[in-house]
């Protein structure tokens, strides 16, 4: 997976994206090293979701280039999709299929072998073993979210992209989500997640970054974080935001 070649897990250079009305991303640069958990903060409409969708090959950049796992986005988006797992706002599951059917379908779409074992493994991780044959429609919102995470890690991707994975979860689900994230991060997975909850993001992330005015306005290691400057960049942006 090019890990040996010393290329970073994610590299973004001069990324521009607008939807025709005003620019969302304006020359964004970002590098994420292998095995790190990066948390991106940003106000509503700052372009967090757009950035993740660009990384996940769901949008096409207007300008700039993206490398994920050393693969150039413009050259082989299909190969990128093979090595990423994505958790988005919506669970991206079929409501009228059971947990097992959903996972089987997406596993086959990824061309995986050994799917039953992988499903056992994933359902165990997200704690939905007993719901295996239940239709997704009958699951609670939090359970659907957990299944969505299961779906994202089914093909054991080296890189995880998560867009506000904690939104809409209750306290208990949040705690187990935190455990899950720490577990995943510990397993040498690279992860990028977005949030607008400062405390939770700081608790979970190894690196933090603030997305503001279409660029990464501040980025630092969690351990060497200049909290005053971080909060300054982030909170001021919230005040200014219309």
């Amino acid at each position: 997976m090019n890990r040996s070649e010393g290329t970073p897990a994610i590299k973004v250079v001069g990324l521009h994206k607008d939807f025709g009305d005003y620019p969302v991303l304006r020359g964004l640069n970002l590098t994420v090293e292998w095995g790190r958990l990066l948390v991106i903060f940003g106000a509503n409409g700052s372009g967090k979701t757009t950035l993740l969708k660009l990384l996940a090959t769901q949008y096409r950049p207007d300008r700039g280039e993206i490398w994920v796992g050393g693969i150039r986005r413009s050259q082989d988006p299909v190969a990128i999709r093979r090595i990423i797992g994505v958790v988005a706002h919506q669970p991206m599951l079929y409501q009228d299929m059971t947990c097992q059917e959903n996972l089987t379908f997406f596993g086959r779409m990824h061309g995986l072998d050994d799917i039953p074992r992988r499903i056992d493994d994933v359902l165990h991780k997200v704690g939905l073993e007993v719901r295996r044959h239940q239709r997704v429609r009958t699951l609670s919102h939090g359970m659907q979210k957990r299944l969505a995470i299961g779906r994202a890690i089914l093909h054991d991707p080296p890189i995880l992209l998560m867009d506000e994975p904690e939104s809409g979860l209750d306290q208990e689900a949040l705690a187990s989500m935190g455990d899950l994230l720490r577990m995943e991060a510990g397993s040498n997975r690279t992860a990028v997640m977005t949030t607008h909850n400062v405390d939770r993001g700081l608790a979970w992330g190894q690196e933090v970054a603030v997305l503001s005015d279409g660029v990464i306005a501040y980025k630092a290691d969690r351990d060497s974080l200049d909290e005053g400057r971080f909060r300054g960049t982030y909170l001021k942006q919230i005040e200014v935001a219309p």
């Binding site: 009305d21 005003y22 620019p23 005015d213 960049t233 001021k236 942006q237 005040e239 200014v240 219309p242």
Partner: peptide, 17 residues
Amino acid sequence: LRSIRYSKELTRGARIE
């Protein structure tokens, strides 16, 4: 016009920052 309006908003934002 759209880009001028947007860059105005940006300068205003930058000044506050």
